[in-house]
Design a protein around this nucleic acid. Structure first.
Ligand SMILES: [Zn+2]
Ligand SMILES: [Zn+2]
Ligand SMILES: [Zn+2]
Ligand SMILES: [Zn+2]
Lengths: 160, 160
DNA sequence: GAATGCAATGTTATAACATTGCATTTGTAC
DNA sequence: GTACAAATGCAATGTTATAACATTGCATTC
């Protein structure tokens, strides 16, 4: 079972988050986009949920501060953050995660743990080059920087 | 855009499908499970949709023969087929595909084309060994035989 | 300073996807 | 044929995501 949202939260991370949010705001501005208040709040919630969070859980959290918030409020913010490379969607889990990487020169591997649903984003040159080679041989072209993989996470491997 | 269901259908494939269905039935029996009429019909529809099909499209097709069919009818059949290794779900697309492989000694790569939504199932020893190595180094263990990858398919690469 | 353009947001409704719970039927073992 | 488990029928509900349209706020133009 996934931990409840409140367990995931980490108030001590506020300072780091503020810095990360400021960096994100700057990078949006550099691209001519703006990290508005709503988008910043959603990104903040993503930062506080290291293993991913569901859209409607986000909505519930956003509603605490903005009672008028509705599904489009959070889906629009998520779409924006994904466009900007600040977040990712894990399709098989309907889960959204903040991106911890400065760029996606190398496409990322997303390891989704089937036991605890935790998500880890990994960049591995060796895997990606093997992948590019094989896909090219099959006539495909790797485009989106998103590869989802089911893999038991270290915590759950230990828990056997 | 995905082709309409009717375009995907191929009546000439009936004979091959019957053989494949019979093989599937035998393999279920060998495992002590039974490929009932409903399950067989769903698997048949999957065989006729090489690039995957949505659950509610399946439902609509099944209803032609069984007007009483409801969502659980098809989801239960799909769950069974997935358990038996006869089908896979592509999480990011909510798409179901028949498996064309006799076994999953090697985990499969599912290439999902972001342009046409087509799905190709591939088994590549070189990629999987690079992947296992990297994941093991990170403390993860590859378990589920399912890796989803966004990759432009040959047809769409050509269409540029 | 009114009119226009535009990005973001608000609001309502609905589409699309999936599961639960319980009653009934079917197949199989004894 | 009785008993039991597996499968199915069926209604309701839960979950995830988008469509469609209105409004706000701010910058530019006239
Ligand atoms: Zn990332
Ligand atoms: Zn885990
Ligand atoms: Zn397969
Ligand atoms: Zn394609």
């Amino acid at each position: 079972m996934r931990p409840a949202v409140s367990d995931v939260e980490n108030p001590l991370a506020d300072c780091e988050n503020t810095q990360a949010l400021d960096r994100a705001e700057a990078s949006c501005r550099a691209r001519g986009a703006s990290l508005t208040a709503i988008r910043r709040e959603v990104l903040d919630l993503l930062y506080r949920s290291p293993t991913g969070v569901k859209a409607y859980d986000l909505l519930a959290r956003i509603k605490e501060a903005r009672p008028g918030a509705s599904p489009p409020t959070v889906y629009r913010a998520l779409d924006f953050l994904i466009d900007q490379g600040l977040a990712h969607k894990i399709g098989r889990m309907n889960l959204f995660v903040a991106c911890r990487h400065a760029s996606h020169q190398i496409p990322s591997l997303f390891l989704v743990c089937p036991k605890c649903s935790g998500v880890t984003e990994l960049q591995e040159q060796s895997v990606m080059s093997a992948l590019s080679t094989s896909l090219a041989a099959a006539g495909h072209r790797l485009e989106s920087p998103e590869v989802e993989i089911s893999a038991i996470c270290p915590k759950c491997v230990g828990a056997g």
